[in-house]
Simulated assay, not measured.
Amino acid sequence: SSQPAQPSGSADIGHAKAKSIALNHAGVSENEAYDMDIELDDEDGILVYEVEFKSGNMEYDYEINAATGAILKHESELDD
């Protein structure tokens, strides 16, 4: 059986990487984003970064796997 390179729980992409993943996916540059909020959260034993920000008249909401950088969930909506 092949072992994962890093044991579960120790791998973490970090806040800056989580931010850039979300911004890249949204097609928003860092200087266009405001009200940026990033939190590391434990969901059923999986560490995820919750990344929220606004750009223009849009509001973006991401959940990113903290170990792999995979985007688990993303939403964008008009900010009223």
Rank of each mutant, 00 (worst) to 15 (best):
S1W: 06
S1E: 11
S2H: 12
Q3N: 11
Q6P: 00
P7H: 07
P7R: 12
G9C: 09
G9T: 09
G9S: 09
A11P: 00
I13P: 00
I13V: 09
H15M: 06
H15S: 07
H15Q: 12
A16G: 08
A16N: 13
A18E: 07
A22L: 08
H25T: 10
H25M: 07
A26Q: 08
V28G: 01
V28H: 01
S29R: 13
S29K: 14
E30C: 00
E32W: 01
E32C: 01
A33W: 03
Y34M: 02
D35E: 12
M36Y: 06
D37A: 11
D37H: 11
L40K: 15
D42P: 01
D42N: 15
E43T: 07
D44M: 11
D44L: 13
G45P: 06
G45L: 08
Y49P: 04
E50M: 03
E50K: 13
E50A: 04
E50P: 02
E52R: 13
E52H: 07
E52F: 00
F53K: 03
K54W: 00
S55H: 02
G56Y: 01
G56F: 00
M58F: 09
Y60P: 04
D61T: 04
D61L: 01
Y62E: 07
E63A: 08
E63R: 12
I64S: 02
A66N: 05
T68G: 08
T68W: 10
T68S: 15
I71W: 03
L72W: 02
K73G: 06
K73D: 13
H74V: 00
H74F: 14
S76M: 14
S76F: 10
L78K: 12
D79Y: 08
D80K: 08
